[in-house]
Design a protein around this nucleic acid. Structure first.
Lengths: 141, 141
DNA sequence: TGACTTCTTGCAAATCATTCTCATAATCAA
DNA sequence: TTGATTATGAGAATGATTTGCAAGAAGTCA
C-alpha cells in the first residue's frame, strides 16, 4: 500500500464523517486524484477514472469535482484559454508558473509576495479572501 | 470635445496608419471603450455600442475586440467564473482587486511584486512573458 | 436482512461565452 | 466610380460545463 492509497483511505473516511456518501465513482475519482502528480483537466480525470471503473460518466466527474471543491479536497485552477485543471488541496497554498511552450505547470510560493498582496489590499480597505497569481513564462535563452 | 473623444480620434488614426479599416462599427466600439471608466464584458459593450449604432452585432463586437487586442488597444481580463472583461490598454500595466460582493474592479500596481515575480521565474530558469494577479477581496469589517 | 427515504448516476438535452460560416455590404485605393 | 479586398449580420457551430429526469445505489432503522 503506497502513500497515495493511504491518502485515499483517509479522504474517504474524512468525507464520510462529514456526511458525504461514498460511491464507486467517487472512490475512483479520489484514487485518480490522489495518484495524480500533475494538473489534469476534467476530461483527463474522466479518462483515468474509467480505467478503474468504466461506468463513470463525465457528468459525474464534474459533479464530484464540485463536491470535492466544496469540501476543500481539491482545488480548481483556470488558466488562460484552457479548460479548468484540478489538484488535491493537501499541499499548502502555492501559485503557478505556466510554460507557454509546453503547457507545463510549476508550483511555487512566496511569503514575501503574499505579504505584499495583503498590504496592498489593506491600503484599499480590503482583505484578501483568496488570490490568483500566474506567471506565463518561457524558458530562458 | 472631451478627453475621450480626443482619444477616439487618435486611436482611429493610429489604427488606419497600421492598415486597419475604419468602419462604422469599429468607430462605435472605440467610442464606447474610450468612454468606459469600468471593465465591461462583451455583452455590455454590445449594449453600449448599439446606443451609438443599433446595427452593431455581438459577433462584430467580439471580432473587433480581438482585433483591438492584437493591436494592443484593449486588454482582455478573465476573472473567476465570469465572462471576459475589457479595458483600453493606454494605462500602464496593473493588476486587479475584485470585490467579491459587488464585482467592482480596482486597479493597482506594485513594482516590488513584479520584481519578485521576475526573480522567482528566474530561479526556475524562466522569464516572465506576462502574468496575471488577482486579489479576490472583501471590504474590511 | 428487508423496506424506505434520500442521494447519485448516466444519458441526453440545455447553457453560456465565444467563434465560425457564408452571403451581402462597406471600405479604400486607383 | 470601379474594383479588389475586407467587414458585417444572422444564425449555426463549438467546447466546457451544468442540468433534468428516470433508474439505481447508500445509509438508516426495525
Amino acid at each position: 500500500m503506497n502513500e497515495a492509497d493511504e491518502k485515499v483511505g483517509e479522504l474517504e473516511e474524512a468525507l464520510r464523517a462529514r456526511g458525504v456518501r461514498m460511491t464507486r465513482q467517487r472512490a475512483a475519482l479520489l484514487t485518480v486524484l490522489a495518484n495524480a502528480e500533475d494538473h489534469p483537466d476534467a476530461n483527463e480525470l474522466h479518462r483515468r477514472a474509467r480505467e478503474i471503473d468504466p461506468s463513470v460518466s463525465l457528468a459525474t466527474v464534474y459533479r464530484t469535482l464540485s463536491l470535492l471543491q466544496d469540501q476543500s479536497v481539491v482545488q480548481r485552477h483556470v488558466f488562460e484559454g484552457a479548460p479548468a485543471r484540478f489538484e488535491t488541496a493537501d499541499a499548502p497554498h502555492h501559485d503557478h508558473i505556466i510554460d507557454l511552450d509546453t503547457g507545463d505547470v510549476i508550483e511555487f510560493c512566496s511569503d514575501r509576495i503574499e505579504r505584499l498582496q495583503a498590504e496592498i489590499a489593506a491600503e484599499h480597505g480590503y482583505e484578501v479572501v483568496h488570490h490568483r497569481m500566474e506567471l506565463y513564462c518561457r524558458k530562458k535563452g
